[in-house]
């Protein structure tokens, strides 16, 4: 936990620079992987070898080859290009869900920690209730109520993972609130919102950056789990979960249709975990 007395907003920037300069190999490899997928998400056409939606009935269900690096699906569409095409939607779902989850968690967690007293107990109780419901079940509830769509998926995963973050943020806030420099700032007559903004939030946020990094990967896994159950969106667009769900039926005869999208999810989430873990180590090492 970071408890340095000098807190400035610009600190994370410097940290980032420093972080990039001294990275072990696995972190570098992970960063490269993330970069690759982010590029695929932003500009899929750059990396694709085929049109991911182009149907070519003559080359259906081909195993990986030089022409089709990761094989083709039933309609002869190039799986490699489809996985890259799907990166955009999957990343968007992961980021969206994490952003939602973090915002909810921040608002509730900060409110709980700062208010204390009755509001704190009520909010803590709400976290308890939501925490008591397994993430996937909570997501199923949202899908049941609103029907499957990208938005539902984002909301379901976002709300499902929020209680954990909220609890953590509350804990962070409480521990910072009690530290000497906050007391000192109070004694100096700084207005309370300013103290929160300048001192408490930045300190609470640092450890969160690591959690967010890991969280995006986890959110993608949850979302593709929903899609895997057939409760995600089922468009022609090759979102990773949809690819996993479609590939499942072919797994005995066309293994690549299931293995490859799963590998994409795993590798991406793994890279985020490694980077997140590294961030965490760095931040904790600063104590």
């Amino acid at each position: 936990m970071s408890r340095s007395v000098e807190v400035t907003v610009s600190r994370p920037l410097g940290e980032l620079l420093e972080f990039i300069c001294y990275v072990p190999f696995r972190v570098a490899a992970s960063l490269a992987t993330i970069g690759f997928f982010v590029l695929a998400a932003i500009a899929p056409k750059v990396l694709q070898t085929h049109d991911p939606l182009a149907i070519d009935l003559s080359s259906s269900l081909q195993s990986p080859s030089i022409v089709h690096w990761l094989g083709t699906d039933q309609l002869g569409r190039d799986l490699y290009s489809r996985v890259l095409e799907g990166a955009g939607q999957s990343l968007a779902i992961g980021l969206g869900a994490t952003a939602l989850s973090m915002s909810v968690a921040l608002i509730l967690g900060v409110a709980a920690a700062l208010s204390g007293g009755l509001l704190d107990s009520i909010l803590t109780r709400i976290f308890d209730v939501l925490f008591a419901i397994p993430t996937l079940l909570l997501a199923l509830v949202f899908v049941t109520v609103f029907g499957p769509s990208v938005l539902t998926e984002v909301i379901a995963v976002g709300i499902g993972t929020a209680p954990g973050y909220a609890r953590m943020i509350r804990g962070q806030m409480l521990s910072i609130k009690g530290t000497g420099y906050v007391e000192a700032a109070k004694a100096l007559g700084h207005p309370f919102p300013r103290i929160v903004w300048r001192h408490i939030l930045p300190n609470a946020m640092s450890p969160l950056t690591a959690m967010v990094t890991i969280g995006v990967g986890q959110a993608i896994i949850w979302a593709s789990g929903l899609a895997f159950l057939g409760l995600g969106v089922a468009p022609p667009a090759p979102e990773w979960g949809a690819l996993l769900n479609a590939g499942r039926n072919y797994v005995i005869y066309a293994w690549w249709l299931e293995i490859i999208p799963g590998l994409a999810v795993t590798i991406f989430a793994l890279s985020l975990t490694i980077v997140g873990g590294h961030l965490q180590d760095r931040l904790e090492g600063k104590i």
């Binding site: 149907i55 009935l57 039933q74 309609l75 057939g230 089922a234 022609p236 479609a246 039926n249």
Partner: peptide, 18 residues
């Protein structure tokens, strides 16, 4: 809806679309 269509049928619709 997949209540009325096997997953393979959905693929066929994608062909028709194109």
């Amino acid at each position: 809806s997949n209540a009325f269509l096997k997953p393979d049928g959905e693929q066929a619709l994608q062909v028709i679309q194109q």
